[in-house]
């Protein structure tokens, strides 16, 4: 049984993660423990969740620059509402998710109805969300609601004393949901179809408008969920938080093997993209002498390598286009 060429980028991503982890282990044997793995999941939970939404957007050939600002807005929204009203956190979370999904849907509608590039519309969305966060407060607001504290301390003790926290579990659930939605539903098929070619997708019967709105609503939902996780993780809301996270998420998606131009990729690859980036950070912490800037340099190199890999694979696998 030969390997289907469409799996190559995914296998490359997983391969890089495994090799990277092996290198880390050889240098610091302590890194192969459930503690490190638990922390890897917890520390990158918010990034993983938002990257799942970003994967779906990028698969459709779009981009969502608003998510970093939406996460910051979410944190501030939760903190301020818990401070100023008597609402239960669950109610606040529900309100927030409705709000961010609607925000995403509105951007999707604009992108479709005005035939505007997603880049511009979500850039405007980024400023709007960041501005809205500032309107709520300009300083960091601590969250000390007892329910949130409970969530912060909720974990499952893995063998080897590693803690799989609630937010880590949430991230894994988000990935599972993303995998099913992208690869096992008609909506997912429509997303890939639009990423492959909007005109063709329309000819094949895809409702472009509805799908576009749903794509950005999903990304908004994931950004809201990521905001909740980030608020639980940091225990505060701060309007200046998570600046540039949208770009980190895009990097994770690309390192995860998804084609930046859309139409090809795997949601599970994004998980490995996020974990690979987390791994580099963990390595730097273990080493202790390296500057944290090295994280960015290595991520930059990885991105470059993946873009080159995808170019090469496209050349290898695309048949006949050379003579068309």
């Amino acid at each position: 049984m030969t390997i289907n060429p469409r799996l190559y980028p995914l296998l490359a991503t997983i391969g890089i993660f495994v090799v990277g982890y092996a290198i880390c282990y050889l240098q610091f044997p302590a890194m192969l423990s459930t503690r490190v793995i638990g922390n890897l999941l917890t520390d990158n939970a918010y990034l993983g969740i938002v990257a799942v939404g970003m994967t779906v957007v990028i698969l459709s050939g779009g981009i969502d620059l608003s998510v970093g600002a939406v996460i910051a807005f979410s944190g501030v929204f939760i903190a301020v509402l818990l401070r100023d009203t008597g609402l239960h956190p669950i109610v606040v979370f529900a309100l927030l998710l409705v709000l961010t999904s609607a925000f995403g849907a509105a951007m999707g509608w604009l992108i479709h109805a005005l035939a505007m590039p997603a880049f511009i519309v979500t850039l405007a969305g980024m400023f709007l969300a960041r501005g809205a966060a500032y309107m709520l407060t300009i300083e960091s607001v601590a969250i000390n609601h007892p329910f949130i504290v409970t969530l912060q301390n909720a974990y499952w003790l893995m063998p080897g004393r590693g803690r799989l926290t609630l937010i880590g579990i949430l991230m894994l659930l988000a990935v599972v949901a993303g995998v099913l939605i992208a690869h096992r539903t008609r909506f997912g098929a429509s997303v890939f179809a639009i990423g492959g070619g909007e005109q063709t997708a329309r000819l094949m019967g895809v409702d472009i408008g509805r799908t576009t709105i749903l794509i950005y609503a999903f990304s908004g939902l994931m950004a809201g969920l990521s905001g909740i996780v980030f608020a639980i993780y940091t225990g505060s809301g701060y309007p200046l938080a998570t600046v540039g996270v949208e770009l980190t998420a895009i990097a994770a998606v690309v390192i995860g093997g998804t084609l930046l131009t859309g139409g090809a990729g795997y949601v599970v690859g994004t998980l490995f993209g996020v974990l690979t980036m987390g791994l580099i950070q963990t390595y730097i912490v273990f080493d202790g002498t390296l500057s944290s800037w090295w994280t960015r340099i290595v991520i930059g190199l990885l991105l470059l390598a993946f873009i080159l890999l995808q170019r090469g694979l496209l050349k290898l696998t695309a048949f006949g286009d050379a003579r068309a």
């Binding site: 469409r6 890939f192 179809a193 094949m204 090809a264």
Partner: peptide, 14 residues
């Protein structure tokens, strides 16, 4: 007018 980025099966049953 089919999608080269999807599998033959996905295209046929889209």
């Amino acid at each position: 007018n089919l999608l080269p980025n999807m599998t033959v099966a996905q295209n046929l049953t889209f």
